[in-house]
C-alpha cells in the first residue's frame, strides 16, 4: 500500500475531519450536489445550475456585483471605524488623518467612497436589467418589492455616509436632504398639512433625523449609527430575504 494514500485515509477517517467535511470527493452526482449544499459559501447557489444561468449577458451579474461591493464596503467600513470618531471636534481631523498618516488609510477611505458610489450605480443597473428583462413579473413580484426597499436603503447608506467626513460638501448635502424631509407632507414642518397636526421645527421628521433643529453633534452621531449599524443590519436582513426569494421563485432569471 502506498504510504501517502495510507496517511490520507487515516486523516480522513479521524473524527475531526469527518465532523468538518461531510462528504468525499469521488465524482458522483450525489457528491456534486453535496459539494454545493454543504458548503457555507456555496449553499446560496442552487445544487444544479440551469444552462441559461451561465449566460452572463442576460443578468450581467449585477445583483452579485452589488452584493460583492456591499461586502467590500463592510470590510473597509469596519477598518475605517478603528480610526474615525463621530465627534464634531474630531471627525474632520480623523478623516484627514486617514488620508495622510494612517497606514493604508488613504486607500481604505478612497476605496470605501468609490465603492459607495459604485454600489449605487450597480444597484440602479441591476434594477434596470430586471425591468428590461421583465424579471419582476409573476412569480417574482415580492422580490421586486424587496429590491425596491434595498434600493432605498442603498440610497440611505450613501446619504448617511456623506455627512461623516464633516466637511462642507457633506454638511450642505445633509442640509439639502433633510430640508427635503422637512417639506414632506404631514411629517415635515414645511410640508402640506403640517399645521393640521401641529408639526413644528422641533417635532417633525427632520428633527428626528438630525436630533435637533440644526445640523450639529447629534446629527453626526445619528448619521454614524444609522450608517454603520442601523441600515446595514436592516439591509442585510432584506438581502437574506432577497436571495432566498431568488431561489424560491424559480432560480436565477433567464430567457424564457
Amino acid at each position: 500500500m502506498n504510504l501517502i494514500s495510507y496517511f490520507i485515509r487515516k486523516l480522513t477517517e479521524t473524527e475531526v475531519w469527518k465532523s468538518v467535511f461531510r462528504h468525499g470527493y469521488t465524482d458522483t452526482p450525489r457528491n456534486r450536489a453535496l459539494q454545493t449544499l454543504s458548503n457555507v459559501w456555496l449553499h446560496l447557489h442552487p445544487v444544479k445550475v440551469p444552462k441559461h444561468a451561465v449566460k452572463i449577458r442576460f443578468t450581467w451579474c449585477l445583483g452579485g456585483l452589488t452584493f460583492f461591493i456591499f461586502l467590500f464596503l463592510t470590510v473597509t467600513g469596519v477598518l475605517l471605524m478603528f480610526y474615525y470618531v463621530p465627534d464634531v471636534n474630531r471627525a474632520y481631523a480623523d478623516m484627514i488623518d486617514l488620508m495622510y498618516v494612517v497606514p493604508l488609510g488613504r486607500l481604505l477611505r478612497t476605496s470605501h467612497r468609490w465603492a459607495g458610489h459604485a454600489m449605487v450605480i450597480t444597484v440602479c443597473f441591476h434594477m434596470l436589467r430586471v425591468f428590461l428583462t421583465g424579471s419582476y413579473k409573476a412569480p417574482r413580484q415580492f422580490n421586486w418589492v424587496l429590491g425596491v426597499l434595498l434600493l432605498v436603503l442603498t440610497f440611505l447608506l450613501s446619504f448617511t455616509g456623506y455627512l461623516l467626513p464633516w466637511d462642507q460638501l457633506g454638511y450642505w448635502a445633509i442640509m439639502v436632504g433633510t430640508n427635503m424631509g422637512a417639506a414632506t407632507p404631514v411629517m415635515g414642518y414645511q410640508g402640506p398639512f403640517a399645521e393640521l397636526l401641529g408639526v413644528k421645527i422641533n417635532n417633525d421628521i427632520r428633527f428626528a433625523l438630525l436630533g435637533g433643529t440644526q445640523i450639529d453633534a447629534p446629527s453626526l452621531l445619528r448619521a454614524y449609527v444609522w450608517h454603520c449599524i442601523g441600515i446595514p443590519i436592516i439591509a442585510g436582513a432584506l438581502m437574506i430575504l432577497h436571495f432566498w426569494r431568488v431561489r424560491k421563485d424559480g432560480g436565477i432569471s433567464g430567457p424564457l
Binding site: 422641533n202 417635532n203 428633527f207 450639529d216
Partner: peptide, 16 residues
C-alpha cells in the same frame, strides 16, 4: 413614535 408620546428619536433637551 412621535414627540408627543415621548418618541426615542426626539430629544427633550437640546444643546443648541
Amino acid at each position: 413614535g412621535p414627540k408627543n408620546i415621548g418618541g426615542f428619536f426626539f430629544p427633550k433637551v437640546l444643546f443648541e
